[in-house]
């Protein structure tokens, strides 16, 4: 009987959210590519990153980007594993590994962003330099 089988327990949330996060990531990725490749330095020099990171909007954007990309990616990998007949212990092991590795790298990325110092000089001065 499917009386008590509602859509919430069937994985439909992750299906919807995979599409929603995917669309957000496409938009953010366009901005990311423009920012990183506008000039050869903009993505590859410490000063350019430091200047951007003086704005909390950029920090929040990057934190969102990391979390959404990690969720979307790991949910995608899990989706691939779900295509195969996994025994319960295999499913639990793989799911745990994905969550642990994902959390570790997400926290590492968050730490990297939050560790960037706020400097006293104004952003425009830094950009000129």
């Amino acid at each position: 009987m499917y009386k008590h089988q509602n859509s919430r327990s069937s994985g439909s949330f992750s299906w919807v959210f995979q599409r929603v996060t995917g669309l957000i990531l496409v938009v953010v990725m366009i901005g990311h590519y423009i920012l990183m490749h506008y000039t050869p330095e903009s993505g590859h020099s410490y000063d350019a990153v430091l200047a951007r990171m003086q704005s909390n909007w950029y920090r929040v954007l990057d934190l969102t980007f990391i979390v959404l990309a990690m969720y979307h990616g790991l949910n995608g990998v899990w989706g691939i594993f779900r295509d195969y007949k996994l025994k319960q212990w295999q499913a639990i092991t793989i799911m745990s590994l994905l969550i642990i590795v994902g959390l570790a790298f997400t926290l590492w990325g968050i730490k990297t962003i939050l560790d960037i110092p706020y400097v006293q000089t104004s952003t425009s001065e830094l950009l000129v330099k």
């Binding site: 990391i66 590492w108 990325g109 730490k111 990297t112 560790d115």
Partner: peptide
């Protein structure tokens, strides 16, 4: 994430 982690080392 690994390759950008030196950001926190200055």
């Amino acid at each position: 994430i690994y390759s950008l982690s030196p950001l926190s080392q200055g």
